[in-house]
């Protein structure tokens, strides 16, 4: 399933947060969005679900204009993991993940089986009966990812899913996303992970796409220095694939 943002504009007050962003997440690929804090990455993915009002442009999910779809239909097409992990009320892990079945209209036993499978896939089945409040930040994040997976969509949108995880779990999660066969759109801060795992990358700065393409194309040393103010380049990883080396200057 393909996800297309076409010329997205978002304005909040006088500030234009997104200035006509176009981006495509292709079928079965991992598409990454990178960029400095406040460049509009989260705002862009949030427009998919109507969480931010558009002042221009269209979000196309599987060829359909998202603005014309009900929340339930969008939820049956795309799963979403938000950036923060805060929550005001306590639920058990299994309860949280089972909530994902709402859009699929699954109830009871089959819902629990699907939820359990999603937890299994993310390696946190052992947390099943634990309460959300008793979990560490990283565990909680994985629970939210499992919930999005349990939604059973062909499209997953994740906003910085790695930022509470330890390194081992970051790699585990990205390997899972890479091999799950779904269309994945992911906001990342870690440029090494972006270089290694993303098929396509979009570099955002101040509400516009600065570059896009394969990691080598999108992260040229010149652009990295321009956008992030620090040097670095895409390099071959020892174990194969790509890595990103920082100049620390």
């Amino acid at each position: 399933m393909r996800l297309c943002y076409e010329n997205i504009r978002v304005r909040m007050g006088k500030k234009e947060i997104l200035k006509g962003v176009s981006l495509t997440a292709r079928e079965g690929q991992v598409t990454g969005i990178i960029g400095p804090n406040g460049c509009g990455k989260s705002t862009l993915v949030r427009t998919t679900f109507g969480l931010v009002p558009l002042s221009g442009g269209t979000v196309w999910i599987d060829g359909k204009n998202a603005a014309g779809l009900s929340a339930r239909t969008v939820a049956s097409l795309a799963g979403y993991v938000r950036q923060e992990i805060s929550c005001a009320f306590d639920f058990s892990v299994l309860e949280v993940v089972s909530m994902a079945l709402y859009a699929r209209r699954e109830r009871g036993g089959s819902a629990e089986a699907i939820a359990a499978q999603a937890l299994e896939d993310l390696g946190i089945r052992y947390l099943e009966q634990r309460k959300l409040f008793s979990l560490s930040g990283g565990e909680r994040k994985l629970v939210y990812v499992a919930r999005a997976v349990a939604q059973g969509t062909d499209l997953l949108i994740l906003d910085e899913p790695t930022n509470h995880l330890d390194i081992c779990r970051q790699i585990f999660l990205l390997n899972y996303l890479k091999t799950c066969g779904k269309t994945v759109l992911i906001v990342l801060h870690d440029l090494r992970l972006a270089a290694h795992y993303c098929d396509q990358l979009y570099l955002l700065s101040e509400g516009s796409v600065v570059s896009s393409g394969t990691p080598q194309e999108a992260m040229s040393p010149r652009l990295i220095r321009e956008v992030f103010g620090t040097g670095g380049r895409v390099v071959p990883a020892e174990a194969g694939g790509l890595d990103f080396g920082l100049d620390f200057s």
Partner: peptide, 21 residues
């Protein structure tokens, strides 16, 4: 009750899970 549960996860999550909040 299910919808209330989803709302308790926060607006963003509820919307993304298909609730017309």
């Amino acid at each position: 009750g299910r919808t209330f549960n989803m709302l308790m996860m926060g607006d963003e999550d509820a919307v993304a899970m298909g609730v017309c909040v």
